[in-house]
Amino acid sequence: MLTVPQVMARLQLGRSAVYDLLRTRQLASIALGRARRIPTRALTDFIHTRPEQETAV
């Protein structure tokens, strides 16, 4: 399970961009109390499907 700052570092995105991905459900997460955690598998899947989505546009 990754924290938002860890995902920010791995994707080289800002906090708002990561929360936008979570809000739009492009990146899966779970809530633990008030905290958000991103399963490592969800981040891996997001990274692998991203090039497919961009070439489809």
Rank of each mutant, 00 (worst) to 15 (best):
R50T: 11
T55P: 00
T24Q: 12
R37V: 04
V7K: 10
G33H: 02
L11M: 02
T40F: 06
V18W: 04
L27D: 08
A9N: 03
T55K: 11
T55R: 12
R36E: 04
I38V: 15
V4P: 09
P5S: 06
L11F: 07
T3A: 09
T3I: 01
E52G: 07
M8I: 09
H48K: 10
L22P: 05
R41S: 08
A9V: 05
R25F: 10
L32P: 00
S29W: 01
A42M: 09
D20V: 11
P5I: 06
R37A: 11
R25W: 06
A42Y: 06
R50H: 13
T3Y: 00
R36D: 01
M8T: 06
Q12K: 15
T24N: 14
R50S: 14
A42G: 01
V18S: 10
A35M: 12
Q6T: 03
I47R: 13
D45E: 15
L2Y: 05
M8A: 04
A9Q: 14
V4C: 00
I38E: 02
A35R: 13
P39A: 04
I30W: 05
Q26T: 08
L11A: 00
Y19G: 06
R36F: 02
Q12G: 13
V4D: 03
L27V: 01
P51R: 09
L21Q: 12
T40E: 13
I38R: 01
